[in-house]
Simulated assay, not measured.
Amino acid sequence: MKKVISILVIALTFPLTSNAQDDMKKDAMMMDDEAKVVSLEQTKGKFTQEKMTLKEGSYIFEINNNNVGHNVGFVLAPKSDPDAHIKTAYVTNPVANNSKEKTKVTILEKGEYIYFCPLNPTPKYTLVVE
């Protein structure tokens, strides 16, 4: 009898877990569809876009390494606390020379942010979200 109950519990739990995982995947895909892609280019020692203004919302940052000669990255942080890096805005892989990589979806609220690359290294640039 215990064996039958255990099997029923497992059988009833599996579809619930499976549906929850499917829902999470759908939510992530919807966020990707709603997110705007912001392309940024790095050359030796700098970003070519030195200031940006965006509206509140969801963004994916695409970082282009234009012949820097080594891997680059991307850091985004509130201007008021440059050490509070927004982890979703890290590129998913280091950006190899003459290639592109993207970040995860990053939700930006009104305020001022900075962006930079410690690997290149670049100055700290301003991103304003209205």
Rank of each mutant, 00 (worst) to 15 (best):
M1G: 03
K2T: 10
K2S: 02
V4C: 01
S6D: 01
S6A: 12
I10V: 15
I10F: 04
T13L: 06
T13A: 06
P15F: 00
L16S: 02
T17I: 14
S18M: 15
N19I: 12
N19K: 11
D22L: 14
D22R: 10
D23R: 00
D23M: 04
M24C: 08
M24S: 13
K25S: 01
M29C: 11
M29P: 00
M29H: 12
M29A: 15
M30C: 08
D32K: 06
V37T: 15
V38A: 09
V38K: 06
E41W: 07
E41D: 09
E41C: 05
E41K: 12
T43S: 03
K46R: 13
F47I: 11
F47M: 09
E50A: 05
K51H: 15
M52N: 11
T53L: 05
L54S: 09
L54Q: 12
L54G: 07
K55V: 12
E56C: 06
E56I: 15
G57A: 10
S58F: 13
Y59G: 00
I60R: 05
E62V: 08
N64E: 13
N64D: 14
N64L: 10
N65P: 08
N65T: 11
N66R: 04
N67M: 02
N67F: 09
V68L: 02
G69R: 14
H70S: 12
H70K: 11
F74T: 03
L76C: 09
A77Y: 04
A77M: 09
K79S: 12
K79Q: 14
K79A: 13
D81W: 06
D81L: 09
P82F: 08
D83W: 06
D83G: 03
H85Q: 10
K87T: 14
A89D: 00
P94W: 08
P94Q: 11
P94F: 09
P94T: 10
V95G: 03
N97K: 02
E101P: 03
E101G: 01
K102P: 00
K102A: 09
K104S: 13
V105T: 06
K110P: 11
G111E: 12
E112R: 08
E112P: 01
Y113D: 05
Y113L: 07
Y115D: 07
Y115H: 07
F116S: 06
C117E: 01
P118K: 09
P118T: 06
L119R: 03
N120T: 03
P121W: 07
K124Y: 11
